[in-house]
């Protein structure tokens, strides 16, 4: 699989960002129910539950790049992916698409921007409308947006299905008649049918069998070469990401803690959290270094720890970590990390 990846990597360097997040945050609040509002009126202190799903993230993805986004469950990966795909507005900050603020675009421009970025979802069962035939699932958007000439839809849908590795003669069937891997291919065909150049894959293979995973990953890489696609590849599995990504971004509780070219992250991980994660990656060649693994529970995002979010689980934590949020700083060319240990050195 790795031989496939060599060629486009050089091209990725130095080109313009296709998407850029500037200080993007997303907060979810549970509005108080009636009883809650009532006791608040009466002067009782009631806190509205606010989840900082994404907290001040800067990130840019250049054209042709495959960026892997990694983190434990609940750290805000999907939320970040949705904001990148333009289906969820950020609470703070800007999502800049090819130099334009996504939230400020309107009408035809907003639609074009949205179409150029598509998402591939985790659950191959929930991501397809069970009441539509495959041909309708794939053909609806291109027809609605006028991407195909009149009368050309049949052939167009067939092309999309074939490209995603499906037999077009099955297009009159309903999603429940397909296997998980086939359904994921339908989802890919649906996304590609609106001619995107950027795919956000949110745990796109996590729900599949290992053998099927490899097929779908290979399909992603084939499509990348054929269509010159850019990927944001979200996963909680560093092993999958290592195979595909040019660059890896590690998230912890809504924040980016480390960001570096793929080989760099695996060869010289800087952040204690990354190092703990790496210890969890199953490897064929035994590594000499042995890490402690990620100890302890993931803290509640409702009530994140002060300072560095990782301090309750970090073996190197010291006083400053509890008080001050570490900034994302360059530790090597193209390699950034958010840890106070880097200042001490």
């Amino acid at each position: 699989m790795s031989a496939v990846l060599e060629a486009p990597r050089a091209a990725a360097q130095g080109s313009v960002p296709i998407i850029e997040l500037r200080g993007v945050s997303k907060r979810f609040s549970n509005p108080l129910d009636f009883a809650g509002r009532l006791v608040k009126r009466l002067g009782v202190k009631v806190r509205e539950d606010v989840v900082h799903a994404v907290d001040g993230v800067d990130l840019s993805v250049r054209k042709g790049e495959v960026v892997g986004l990694v983190g434990e469950s609940g750290c805000g990966k999907s939320t970040l992916g949705r904001m990148v795909a333009g289906i969820m507005p950020p609470s703070d900050g800007q999502v800049v698409w090819r130099g334009q603020d996504l939230t400020k675009l309107s009408g035809a421009d907003a639609k074009r921007a949205k179409l150029r970025t598509q998402m591939i979802f985790q659950d191959p069962y929930a991501s397809l409308n069970p009441r539509l035939k495959v041909a309708e699932i794939v053909g609806e958007a291109p027809q609605y947006h006028g991407l195909v000439p009149r009368g050309g839809l049949e052939a167009y849908v067939d092309d999309q299905l074939r490209r995603a590795g499906l037999d077009p003669s099955l297009k009159r069937r309903y999603p429940h008649q397909f296997s998980g891997g086939q359904r994921q291919r339908i989802g890919i065909a649906r996304a590609l049918a609106v001619q995107p150049d950027f795919l956000v894959c949110d745990e796109a293979v996590a729900a599949l069998d290992v053998s099927i995973q490899a097929q779908i990953l290979n399909l992603f890489m084939k499509l990348r070469r054929e269509l010159d696609l850019t990927y944001l590849f979200i996963s909680h599995d560093l092993g999958v990401v290592e195979h595909l990504s040019d660059r890896v971004v590690i998230m912890y509780l809504g924040r980016v803690v480390e960001e570096a070219p793929s080989e760099e992250v695996f060869a010289r991980p800087n952040h204690p959290y990354t190092r703990a994660l790496l210890a969890e990656v199953p490897r064929i060649e035994a590594r000499k270094r042995v890490f402690a693994g990620v100890q302890g529970e993931i803290p509640s995002p409702l009530n994140p720890p002060s300072g560095c979010h990782f301090h309750p689980r970090c073996p190197f934590a010291f006083d400053r970590c509890r008080a001050e949020r570490p900034a994302l700083k360059q530790v090597a060319p193209g390699h950034r990390s958010a840890c106070h240990l880097n200042d001490a050195a």
């Binding site: 333009g86 289906i87 639609k111 979802f121 985790q122 991501s127 609806e140 958007a141 996304a191 609106v194």
Partner: peptide
Amino acid sequence: RREYIEAAQCLALPTHRIIFRHLLPN
């Protein structure tokens, strides 16, 4: 909350179409 609704949003389909063609039949 199901992902096919998000997919329809990604495909820039208008809200009324998402409600009546995707949400309501289900």
